[in-house]
Design a protein around this nucleic acid. Structure first.
Lengths: 250, 250
DNA sequence: CTAATAGTGTCTTTAAGACAATATTAT
DNA sequence: ATAATATTGTCTTAAAGACACTATTAG
Protein backbone atom coordinates (compact mmCIF):
# COMPACT_ATOMS: atom_id res chain seq x y z
CA UNK A 1 0.00 0.00 0.00
CA UNK A 2 1.49 3.29 -1.06
CA UNK A 3 0.26 5.07 1.99
CA UNK A 4 2.16 2.73 4.15
CA UNK A 5 5.38 3.25 2.25
CA UNK A 6 5.02 7.01 2.53
CA UNK A 7 4.30 6.56 6.16
CA UNK A 8 7.36 4.52 6.84
CA UNK A 9 9.55 7.00 5.02
CA UNK A 10 8.06 9.99 6.75
CA UNK A 11 10.00 9.68 9.95
CA UNK A 12 13.55 9.06 11.01
CA UNK A 13 14.46 5.35 10.92
CA UNK A 14 16.12 5.89 14.30
CA UNK A 15 12.64 6.29 15.68
CA UNK A 16 11.68 2.96 14.27
CA UNK A 17 13.77 0.76 16.51
CA UNK A 18 11.65 -2.37 16.79
CA UNK A 19 9.02 -2.21 19.48
CA UNK A 20 6.90 -5.02 20.81
CA UNK A 21 3.56 -4.62 22.48
CA UNK A 22 2.35 -7.03 25.12
CA UNK A 23 -0.59 -7.24 27.46
CA UNK A 24 -0.19 -8.20 31.09
CA UNK A 25 -3.15 -9.04 33.25
CA UNK A 26 -3.67 -8.42 36.94
CA UNK A 27 -6.42 -10.97 37.56
CA UNK A 28 -7.99 -10.78 40.99
CA UNK A 29 -10.36 -13.12 42.72
CA UNK A 30 -11.38 -13.88 46.27
CA UNK A 31 -10.79 -17.31 47.79
CA UNK A 32 -11.46 -18.15 51.41
CA UNK A 33 -12.03 -14.51 52.20
CA UNK A 34 -8.62 -13.52 50.88
CA UNK A 35 -7.77 -11.50 47.80
CA UNK A 36 -5.72 -13.55 45.34
CA UNK A 37 -3.88 -12.66 42.15
CA UNK A 38 -3.13 -14.98 39.25
CA UNK A 39 0.60 -15.51 38.71
CA UNK A 40 2.61 -17.65 36.37
CA UNK A 41 6.05 -19.11 36.76
CA UNK A 42 8.27 -18.12 33.88
CA UNK A 43 9.84 -20.92 31.88
CA UNK A 44 12.28 -19.04 29.68
CA UNK A 45 14.76 -16.22 29.99
CA UNK A 46 14.87 -13.60 31.23
CA UNK A 47 13.64 -14.07 34.78
CA UNK A 48 13.41 -17.83 34.31
CA UNK A 49 11.83 -19.37 37.37
CA UNK A 50 10.51 -16.04 38.59
CA UNK A 51 6.87 -15.37 39.09
CA UNK A 52 5.17 -12.91 36.80
CA UNK A 53 1.80 -11.64 35.74
CA UNK A 54 0.22 -13.63 32.94
CA UNK A 55 0.57 -11.91 29.59
CA UNK A 56 1.91 -12.11 26.10
CA UNK A 57 2.21 -10.47 22.75
CA UNK A 58 -0.65 -8.63 21.14
CA UNK A 59 -1.72 -10.27 17.93
CA UNK A 60 -4.02 -8.99 15.22
CA UNK A 61 -6.78 -8.22 17.68
CA UNK A 62 -8.03 -5.45 19.92
CA UNK A 63 -6.12 -4.87 23.13
CA UNK A 64 -9.07 -6.00 25.25
CA UNK A 65 -9.32 -9.17 23.20
CA UNK A 66 -5.64 -9.86 23.71
CA UNK A 67 -6.01 -9.54 27.46
CA UNK A 68 -8.98 -11.88 27.52
CA UNK A 69 -7.18 -14.36 25.33
CA UNK A 70 -4.11 -14.38 27.53
CA UNK A 71 -6.25 -14.83 30.59
CA UNK A 72 -8.03 -17.76 28.99
CA UNK A 73 -4.79 -19.35 27.85
CA UNK A 74 -3.08 -19.09 31.19
CA UNK A 75 -6.01 -20.31 33.21
CA UNK A 76 -7.06 -23.00 30.79
CA UNK A 77 -10.58 -21.59 30.86
CA UNK A 78 -12.44 -21.08 27.63
CA UNK A 79 -14.16 -17.83 26.81
CA UNK A 80 -17.81 -18.19 25.94
CA UNK A 81 -18.29 -21.14 28.22
CA UNK A 82 -19.51 -19.43 31.29
CA UNK A 83 -16.39 -19.33 33.38
CA UNK A 84 -14.92 -16.27 31.77
CA UNK A 85 -18.20 -14.62 30.87
CA UNK A 86 -18.59 -13.08 34.25
CA UNK A 87 -15.08 -11.70 34.29
CA UNK A 88 -14.91 -7.95 34.40
CA UNK A 89 -11.97 -6.65 32.39
CA UNK A 90 -10.67 -3.12 32.16
CA UNK A 91 -7.51 -1.45 31.03
CA UNK A 92 -5.18 -0.38 33.81
CA UNK A 93 -2.38 1.59 32.17
CA UNK A 94 0.67 1.10 30.00
CA UNK A 95 4.27 0.61 31.00
CA UNK A 96 7.04 1.39 28.61
CA UNK A 97 10.25 2.43 30.29
CA UNK A 98 13.21 1.60 28.09
CA UNK A 99 14.97 -1.25 29.81
CA UNK A 100 11.92 -2.70 31.51
CA UNK A 101 12.58 -5.76 29.37
CA UNK A 102 16.30 -6.45 29.01
CA UNK A 103 15.93 -7.85 25.50
CA UNK A 104 14.29 -5.05 23.58
CA UNK A 105 11.82 -2.25 23.80
CA UNK A 106 8.52 -3.63 25.03
CA UNK A 107 5.44 -1.59 25.77
CA UNK A 108 3.04 -3.43 28.00
CA UNK A 109 -0.64 -2.54 28.20
CA UNK A 110 -1.76 -3.80 31.59
CA UNK A 111 -5.29 -4.97 32.28
CA UNK A 112 -7.21 -5.53 35.44
CA UNK A 113 -9.59 -8.50 35.69
CA UNK A 114 -12.06 -9.25 38.45
CA UNK A 115 -13.65 -12.63 38.74
CA UNK A 116 -15.76 -14.66 41.10
CA UNK A 117 -13.80 -17.55 42.53
CA UNK A 118 -12.36 -19.45 39.57
CA UNK A 119 -11.04 -22.98 39.50
CA UNK A 120 -7.33 -23.63 39.83
CA UNK A 121 -5.65 -22.80 36.56
CA UNK A 122 -4.08 -25.23 34.19
CA UNK A 123 -0.67 -24.31 32.87
CA UNK A 124 -0.61 -23.05 29.33
CA UNK A 125 1.35 -20.95 26.89
CA UNK A 126 4.83 -19.94 27.97
CA UNK A 127 4.13 -20.46 31.61
CA UNK A 128 5.38 -23.60 33.24
CA UNK A 129 2.64 -23.13 35.82
CA UNK A 130 -0.07 -20.76 36.92
CA UNK A 131 -1.72 -20.37 40.32
CA UNK A 132 -3.66 -18.07 42.57
CA UNK A 133 -1.53 -16.39 45.22
CA UNK A 134 -2.81 -14.33 48.16
CA UNK A 135 -1.81 -10.76 47.43
CA UNK A 136 -0.02 -10.38 50.73
CA UNK A 137 2.18 -13.38 49.95
CA UNK A 138 3.39 -12.20 46.56
CA UNK A 139 7.15 -11.71 46.58
CA UNK A 140 9.25 -9.90 44.04
CA UNK A 141 7.96 -10.37 40.51
CA UNK A 142 9.70 -10.40 37.15
CA UNK A 143 10.15 -7.24 35.08
CA UNK A 144 8.24 -4.30 36.55
CA UNK A 145 5.31 -6.49 37.47
CA UNK A 146 5.57 -5.62 41.14
CA UNK A 147 4.74 -2.05 40.20
CA UNK A 148 1.96 -3.12 37.88
CA UNK A 149 0.39 -5.28 40.57
CA UNK A 150 0.57 -2.43 43.07
CA UNK A 151 -1.09 -0.09 40.60
CA UNK A 152 -3.77 -2.69 39.93
CA UNK A 153 -4.52 -3.14 43.61
CA UNK A 154 -4.74 0.62 44.07
CA UNK A 155 -7.19 0.83 41.22
CA UNK A 156 -9.29 -2.04 42.49
CA UNK A 157 -9.46 -0.65 46.02
CA UNK A 158 -10.45 2.71 44.72
CA UNK A 159 -13.05 1.46 42.27
CA UNK A 160 -14.81 -0.44 45.00
CA UNK A 161 -15.63 2.92 46.49
CA UNK A 162 -17.54 4.49 43.68
CA UNK A 163 -18.56 1.66 41.36
CA UNK A 164 -20.50 -1.58 41.86
CA UNK A 165 -17.32 -3.49 41.03
CA UNK A 166 -17.61 -5.64 44.14
CA UNK A 167 -20.50 -7.49 42.52
CA UNK A 168 -18.01 -8.83 39.95
CA UNK A 169 -16.39 -10.89 42.71
CA UNK A 170 -19.53 -12.70 43.79
CA UNK A 171 -21.98 -14.99 42.04
CA UNK A 172 -25.09 -13.93 40.16
CA UNK A 173 -27.05 -13.96 43.40
CA UNK A 174 -25.45 -13.02 46.66
CA UNK A 175 -26.15 -11.92 50.18
CA UNK A 176 -25.17 -8.61 51.68
CA UNK A 177 -22.70 -10.45 53.88
CA UNK A 178 -20.97 -11.95 50.88
CA UNK A 179 -20.70 -8.49 49.41
CA UNK A 180 -19.30 -7.19 52.67
CA UNK A 181 -16.71 -9.96 52.64
CA UNK A 182 -15.53 -8.68 49.25
CA UNK A 183 -14.99 -5.20 50.59
CA UNK A 184 -13.25 -6.57 53.67
CA UNK A 185 -10.91 -8.71 51.57
CA UNK A 186 -9.99 -6.05 49.02
CA UNK A 187 -9.64 -3.23 51.51
CA UNK A 188 -8.18 -5.47 54.20
CA UNK A 189 -10.44 -3.81 56.75
CA UNK A 190 -13.30 -4.85 58.98
CA UNK A 191 -16.61 -3.27 58.10
CA UNK A 192 -19.48 -2.74 60.49
CA UNK A 193 -22.14 -5.24 59.44
CA UNK A 194 -25.17 -3.16 60.34
CA UNK A 195 -24.05 0.09 58.82
CA UNK A 196 -22.75 -1.64 55.71
CA UNK A 197 -26.04 -3.42 55.21
CA UNK A 198 -28.10 -0.27 55.38
CA UNK A 199 -25.63 1.65 53.27
CA UNK A 200 -25.65 -0.86 50.42
CA UNK A 201 -29.43 -0.95 50.30
CA UNK A 202 -29.64 2.83 50.34
CA UNK A 203 -27.51 3.38 47.23
CA UNK A 204 -29.88 3.44 44.26
CA UNK A 205 -29.20 0.72 41.72
CA UNK A 206 -26.36 -0.98 43.59
CA UNK A 207 -28.27 -4.18 44.30
CA UNK A 208 -31.80 -5.35 43.68
CA UNK A 209 -33.69 -7.94 45.63
CA UNK A 210 -34.42 -11.33 44.09
CA UNK A 211 -37.21 -11.95 46.59
CA UNK A 212 -35.45 -15.20 47.42
CA UNK A 213 -33.53 -16.10 50.52
CA UNK A 214 -30.44 -18.22 50.98
CA UNK A 215 -30.98 -21.89 51.73
CA UNK A 216 -29.05 -21.74 54.93
CA UNK A 217 -27.70 -19.15 57.35
CA UNK A 218 -24.13 -18.12 57.85
CA UNK A 219 -21.27 -20.55 58.34
CA UNK A 220 -21.39 -20.29 62.06
CA UNK A 221 -25.03 -19.57 62.66
CA UNK A 222 -27.47 -16.78 62.07
CA UNK A 223 -30.68 -16.45 60.14
CA UNK A 224 -31.06 -17.09 56.43
CA UNK A 225 -30.10 -14.02 54.43
CA UNK A 226 -32.00 -12.41 51.59
CA UNK A 227 -30.53 -12.74 48.14
CA UNK A 228 -29.72 -9.86 45.82
CA UNK A 229 -28.31 -9.44 42.37
CA UNK A 230 -26.35 -6.56 40.86
CA UNK A 231 -28.47 -3.52 40.06
CA UNK A 232 -28.22 -1.25 37.05
CA UNK A 233 -26.06 1.46 38.59
CA UNK A 234 -22.71 2.08 36.96
CA UNK A 235 -21.63 4.51 39.64
CA UNK A 236 -22.44 4.42 43.32
CA UNK A 237 -24.03 7.57 44.56
CA UNK A 238 -23.37 8.30 47.28
CA UNK A 239 -20.14 6.33 47.24
CA UNK A 240 -18.92 3.85 49.82
CA UNK A 241 -15.83 5.66 51.00
CA UNK A 242 -13.02 4.08 52.93
CA UNK A 243 -12.23 5.83 56.14
CA UNK A 244 -9.66 8.52 55.35
CA UNK A 245 -6.14 7.51 56.24
CA UNK A 246 -3.72 10.31 56.85
CA UNK A 247 -1.13 8.66 54.62
CA UNK A 248 -2.01 8.63 50.97
CA UNK A 249 -3.63 12.00 51.33
CA UNK A 250 -0.44 14.01 51.71
CA UNK B 1 22.58 -10.30 21.88
CA UNK B 2 21.74 -13.97 22.01
CA UNK B 3 18.83 -13.41 24.34
CA UNK B 4 17.24 -11.18 21.81
CA UNK B 5 17.60 -13.73 19.05
CA UNK B 6 16.06 -16.41 21.22
CA UNK B 7 13.35 -14.01 22.11
CA UNK B 8 12.48 -13.19 18.55
CA UNK B 9 12.40 -16.85 17.66
CA UNK B 10 10.28 -17.80 20.60
CA UNK B 11 6.97 -16.75 19.14
CA UNK B 12 5.11 -17.05 15.92
CA UNK B 13 6.28 -14.51 13.32
CA UNK B 14 2.63 -13.91 12.55
CA UNK B 15 2.43 -12.25 15.91
CA UNK B 16 5.24 -9.97 14.96
CA UNK B 17 3.46 -7.89 12.35
CA UNK B 18 5.15 -4.51 12.71
CA UNK B 19 3.66 -2.34 15.39
CA UNK B 20 4.29 1.32 16.02
CA UNK B 21 3.80 3.08 19.30
CA UNK B 22 2.83 6.72 19.49
CA UNK B 23 1.86 9.14 22.20
CA UNK B 24 -1.05 11.52 21.81
CA UNK B 25 -1.62 14.36 24.21
CA UNK B 26 -4.87 15.86 25.41
CA UNK B 27 -3.53 19.20 26.61
CA UNK B 28 -6.07 21.32 28.45
CA UNK B 29 -5.92 24.89 29.58
CA UNK B 30 -8.37 27.60 30.49
CA UNK B 31 -8.61 30.80 28.50
CA UNK B 32 -11.21 33.48 29.09
CA UNK B 33 -13.06 31.20 31.44
CA UNK B 34 -13.43 28.49 28.83
CA UNK B 35 -11.78 25.10 28.72
CA UNK B 36 -9.54 24.74 25.67
CA UNK B 37 -7.72 21.80 24.13
CA UNK B 38 -4.59 21.94 22.02
CA UNK B 39 -5.15 20.68 18.47
CA UNK B 40 -2.98 20.46 15.39
CA UNK B 41 -3.91 20.49 11.78
CA UNK B 42 -2.52 17.49 9.98
CA UNK B 43 -0.29 18.11 7.01
CA UNK B 44 0.09 14.63 5.57
CA UNK B 45 -2.08 11.65 4.83
CA UNK B 46 -4.17 10.14 6.17
CA UNK B 47 -6.66 12.70 7.43
CA UNK B 48 -4.75 15.53 5.72
CA UNK B 49 -6.29 18.85 6.72
CA UNK B 50 -8.14 17.30 9.64
CA UNK B 51 -7.62 18.37 13.17
CA UNK B 52 -6.00 15.96 15.56
CA UNK B 53 -4.44 15.73 18.97
CA UNK B 54 -0.73 16.53 19.04
CA UNK B 55 1.40 13.41 19.16
CA UNK B 56 4.04 11.34 17.50
CA UNK B 57 6.23 8.31 17.65
CA UNK B 58 7.87 7.17 20.82
CA UNK B 59 11.63 7.28 20.55
CA UNK B 60 14.24 5.82 22.86
CA UNK B 61 12.74 7.48 25.91
CA UNK B 62 10.18 6.88 28.61
CA UNK B 63 6.54 7.28 27.61
CA UNK B 64 6.13 10.31 29.86
CA UNK B 65 9.18 11.89 28.28
CA UNK B 66 7.77 11.27 24.83
CA UNK B 67 4.52 13.00 25.76
CA UNK B 68 6.34 15.99 27.19
CA UNK B 69 8.59 16.19 24.15
CA UNK B 70 5.64 16.11 21.77
CA UNK B 71 3.88 18.78 23.76
CA UNK B 72 6.97 20.97 23.68
CA UNK B 73 7.48 20.44 19.95
CA UNK B 74 3.92 21.21 19.00
CA UNK B 75 3.60 24.27 21.17
CA UNK B 76 7.06 25.61 20.49
CA UNK B 77 7.62 25.88 24.23
CA UNK B 78 10.85 24.60 25.69
CA UNK B 79 10.90 22.29 28.66
CA UNK B 80 13.00 23.56 31.55
CA UNK B 81 12.30 27.17 30.78
CA UNK B 82 9.40 27.77 33.05
CA UNK B 83 6.54 27.54 30.64
CA UNK B 84 6.28 23.79 30.69
CA UNK B 85 7.52 23.27 34.22
CA UNK B 86 4.14 23.88 35.70
CA UNK B 87 2.43 21.47 33.35
CA UNK B 88 0.86 18.50 35.04
CA UNK B 89 1.16 15.41 32.90
CA UNK B 90 -0.40 12.01 33.47
CA UNK B 91 -1.10 8.95 31.42
CA UNK B 92 -4.68 8.60 30.27
CA UNK B 93 -4.93 5.17 28.64
CA UNK B 94 -3.88 3.34 25.49
CA UNK B 95 -5.76 2.86 22.26
CA UNK B 96 -4.92 0.04 19.94
CA UNK B 97 -7.84 -1.18 17.90
CA UNK B 98 -6.61 -2.71 14.68
CA UNK B 99 -7.61 -0.29 11.98
CA UNK B 100 -7.51 2.83 14.12
CA UNK B 101 -4.73 3.93 11.79
CA UNK B 102 -5.43 2.91 8.19
CA UNK B 103 -1.74 2.41 7.40
CA UNK B 104 -0.57 -0.09 9.96
CA UNK B 105 -0.99 -1.26 13.48
CA UNK B 106 -0.44 1.68 15.80
CA UNK B 107 -0.80 1.60 19.55
CA UNK B 108 -1.25 5.05 20.99
CA UNK B 109 -0.53 5.83 24.61
CA UNK B 110 -2.61 8.89 25.38
CA UNK B 111 -1.60 11.49 27.94
CA UNK B 112 -3.49 14.19 29.70
CA UNK B 113 -1.80 17.56 30.33
CA UNK B 114 -3.11 20.41 32.42
CA UNK B 115 -1.55 23.81 32.18
CA UNK B 116 -2.15 27.37 33.29
CA UNK B 117 -2.95 29.61 30.36
CA UNK B 118 -0.14 29.12 27.85
CA UNK B 119 0.82 31.38 24.96
CA UNK B 120 -0.44 30.62 21.47
CA UNK B 121 1.52 27.71 20.05
CA UNK B 122 3.96 27.86 17.21
CA UNK B 123 3.62 25.20 14.57
CA UNK B 124 6.22 22.46 14.69
CA UNK B 125 6.86 18.89 13.73
CA UNK B 126 4.40 17.33 11.32
CA UNK B 127 1.69 19.78 12.14
CA UNK B 128 1.04 22.56 9.74
CA UNK B 129 -0.44 24.48 12.64
CA UNK B 130 -1.41 24.18 16.27
CA UNK B 131 -3.95 26.15 18.29
CA UNK B 132 -6.13 26.18 21.34
CA UNK B 133 -9.76 25.35 20.65
CA UNK B 134 -12.66 25.64 23.09
CA UNK B 135 -13.69 22.08 23.89
CA UNK B 136 -17.30 22.71 22.91
CA UNK B 137 -16.21 23.86 19.46
CA UNK B 138 -14.14 20.83 18.60
CA UNK B 139 -15.57 19.04 15.61
CA UNK B 140 -14.75 15.58 14.36
CA UNK B 141 -11.08 14.72 14.84
CA UNK B 142 -8.75 12.44 12.91
CA UNK B 143 -8.29 8.77 13.82
CA UNK B 144 -10.05 7.91 17.11
CA UNK B 145 -9.03 11.20 18.65
CA UNK B 146 -12.62 12.19 19.29
CA UNK B 147 -12.87 9.24 21.66
CA UNK B 148 -9.53 10.02 23.25
CA UNK B 149 -10.53 13.60 23.86
CA UNK B 150 -13.83 12.52 25.41
CA UNK B 151 -12.02 10.10 27.70
CA UNK B 152 -9.58 12.83 28.66
CA UNK B 153 -12.35 15.26 29.51
CA UNK B 154 -14.08 12.62 31.61
CA UNK B 155 -10.90 11.97 33.48
CA UNK B 156 -10.21 15.66 34.05
CA UNK B 157 -13.74 16.32 35.29
CA UNK B 158 -13.55 13.42 37.64
CA UNK B 159 -10.09 14.22 38.99
CA UNK B 160 -11.19 17.71 39.93
CA UNK B 161 -13.45 16.07 42.44
CA UNK B 162 -10.97 14.21 44.52
CA UNK B 163 -7.56 15.72 43.74
CA UNK B 164 -6.16 19.25 43.88
CA UNK B 165 -5.76 19.14 40.10
CA UNK B 166 -7.57 22.44 39.67
CA UNK B 167 -4.54 24.22 41.06
CA UNK B 168 -2.60 23.10 37.96
CA UNK B 169 -4.76 25.42 35.88
CA UNK B 170 -4.00 28.59 37.82
CA UNK B 171 -0.83 30.46 38.61
CA UNK B 172 1.41 29.92 41.61
CA UNK B 173 -0.74 32.25 43.65
CA UNK B 174 -4.44 32.48 43.10
CA UNK B 175 -7.70 33.59 44.64
CA UNK B 176 -10.54 31.31 45.60
CA UNK B 177 -12.58 32.89 42.83
CA UNK B 178 -9.99 31.96 40.25
CA UNK B 179 -10.08 28.41 41.53
CA UNK B 180 -13.84 28.41 41.33
CA UNK B 181 -13.63 29.61 37.74
CA UNK B 182 -11.55 26.51 36.96
CA UNK B 183 -14.20 24.22 38.35
CA UNK B 184 -16.92 26.11 36.55
CA UNK B 185 -15.06 25.88 33.24
CA UNK B 186 -14.15 22.21 33.46
CA UNK B 187 -17.48 21.06 34.80
CA UNK B 188 -19.45 23.58 32.76
CA UNK B 189 -21.55 24.35 35.81
CA UNK B 190 -22.16 27.32 38.01
CA UNK B 191 -20.91 26.93 41.56
CA UNK B 192 -22.25 28.73 44.57
CA UNK B 193 -19.55 31.23 45.52
CA UNK B 194 -20.13 31.19 49.26
CA UNK B 195 -20.37 27.46 49.70
CA UNK B 196 -17.43 26.84 47.39
CA UNK B 197 -15.28 29.25 49.31
CA UNK B 198 -15.96 27.65 52.64
CA UNK B 199 -15.61 24.17 51.21
CA UNK B 200 -12.18 24.77 49.67
CA UNK B 201 -10.81 26.24 52.88
CA UNK B 202 -12.20 23.36 54.91
CA UNK B 203 -10.39 20.63 52.98
CA UNK B 204 -7.05 20.04 54.72
CA UNK B 205 -4.05 20.70 52.50
CA UNK B 206 -5.97 21.86 49.45
CA UNK B 207 -4.76 25.46 49.60
CA UNK B 208 -2.64 27.44 52.00
CA UNK B 209 -2.77 31.16 52.59
CA UNK B 210 0.06 33.36 51.37
CA UNK B 211 -0.96 36.12 53.76
CA UNK B 212 -1.07 38.42 50.74
CA UNK B 213 -4.06 39.88 49.00
CA UNK B 214 -4.67 40.56 45.34
CA UNK B 215 -3.79 44.00 44.05
CA UNK B 216 -7.27 44.66 42.84
CA UNK B 217 -10.76 43.31 43.20
CA UNK B 218 -12.76 41.34 40.67
CA UNK B 219 -13.21 42.41 37.07
CA UNK B 220 -16.52 44.02 37.74
CA UNK B 221 -16.12 45.14 41.32
CA UNK B 222 -15.84 43.57 44.70
CA UNK B 223 -13.25 43.65 47.45
CA UNK B 224 -9.64 42.53 47.05
CA UNK B 225 -9.32 38.80 47.51
CA UNK B 226 -6.82 36.90 49.63
CA UNK B 227 -4.19 34.92 47.79
CA UNK B 228 -3.50 31.22 48.24
CA UNK B 229 -1.11 28.68 46.82
CA UNK B 230 -1.51 24.93 46.39
CA UNK B 231 -1.26 22.96 49.62
CA UNK B 232 0.41 19.61 50.16
CA UNK B 233 -2.65 17.39 49.81
CA UNK B 234 -2.54 14.83 47.01
CA UNK B 235 -6.13 13.81 47.59
CA UNK B 236 -9.04 15.96 48.67
CA UNK B 237 -10.78 14.68 51.71
CA UNK B 238 -13.64 15.15 51.84
CA UNK B 239 -13.90 15.45 48.07
CA UNK B 240 -15.62 18.20 46.11
CA UNK B 241 -18.33 16.18 44.45
CA UNK B 242 -20.32 17.28 41.47
CA UNK B 243 -24.03 17.19 41.99
CA UNK B 244 -25.22 13.71 40.99
CA UNK B 245 -26.72 13.61 37.56
CA UNK B 246 -29.15 10.84 36.87
CA UNK B 247 -27.43 10.06 33.59
CA UNK B 248 -23.97 8.70 33.92
CA UNK B 249 -25.01 6.81 37.01
CA UNK B 250 -27.14 4.21 35.22
C1' DC C 1 -23.91 55.92 43.02
C1' DT C 2 -24.59 51.10 41.34
C1' DA C 3 -23.57 46.58 40.60
C1' DA C 4 -20.72 42.97 41.44
C1' DT C 5 -17.79 40.38 44.38
C1' DA C 6 -15.28 38.38 48.84
C1' DG C 7 -16.16 36.41 52.73
C1' DT C 8 -19.04 34.91 56.75
C1' DG C 9 -23.25 33.31 59.28
C1' DT C 10 -27.16 30.34 59.77
C1' DC C 11 -30.34 26.81 58.94
C1' DT C 12 -32.00 22.41 56.76
C1' DT C 13 -31.19 18.09 54.80
C1' DT C 14 -28.43 14.18 53.94
C1' DA C 15 -25.09 10.91 54.94
C1' DA C 16 -21.73 8.48 58.04
C1' DG C 17 -20.68 6.13 62.12
C1' DA C 18 -21.30 4.30 66.78
C1' DC C 19 -24.06 1.43 69.27
C1' DA C 20 -28.01 -1.31 70.68
C1' DA C 21 -31.76 -4.57 70.08
C1' DT C 22 -34.25 -8.54 68.18
C1' DA C 23 -35.06 -12.61 65.76
C1' DT C 24 -33.11 -16.62 63.56
C1' DT C 25 -30.10 -20.31 62.64
C1' DA C 26 -25.66 -23.67 62.89
C1' DT C 27 -23.43 -26.40 65.97
C1' DA D 1 -28.27 -24.05 75.02
C1' DT D 2 -24.72 -21.05 72.93
C1' DA D 3 -22.75 -18.27 69.79
C1' DA D 4 -22.88 -16.16 65.57
C1' DT D 5 -25.42 -13.74 62.18
C1' DA D 6 -29.15 -10.82 59.58
C1' DT D 7 -31.63 -7.01 59.93
C1' DT D 8 -33.59 -2.87 61.89
C1' DG D 9 -33.67 1.15 65.14
C1' DT D 10 -31.74 5.19 67.35
C1' DC D 11 -28.67 8.77 68.21
C1' DT D 12 -24.62 11.79 67.25
C1' DT D 13 -21.65 14.03 64.22
C1' DA D 14 -20.01 15.56 59.76
C1' DA D 15 -20.87 17.38 55.43
C1' DA D 16 -23.66 19.51 51.62
C1' DG D 17 -26.63 22.90 50.02
C1' DA D 18 -29.76 26.89 50.20
C1' DC D 19 -30.02 31.43 51.47
C1' DA D 20 -29.00 35.78 53.67
C1' DC D 21 -25.98 39.46 55.03
C1' DT D 22 -21.99 42.76 55.29
C1' DA D 23 -18.12 45.07 53.63
C1' DT D 24 -15.40 46.43 49.73
C1' DT D 25 -14.22 47.74 45.20
C1' DA D 26 -14.60 48.79 39.79
C1' DG D 27 -16.69 51.59 36.81
Amino acid sequence: MTDEREFLESYDPAEFAPVSVTVDVVALTIRDGQLHVLLVERGGHPFAGWRALPGGFVQDEALDAAALRELAEETGLRPGEGDLDRVHLEQLRSYGDPGRDPRMRVISVAYLAFAPSLPDPRAGGDASGAFWVPVDEVGELAFDHTTILADGLDRARSKLEYTPLATAFVGDEFTISELRAVYAAVWDEELHAGNFHRKVLSVPGFVESTGETSTRGGERGGPKARLYRAGDARLLHPALLRPAREDGIR
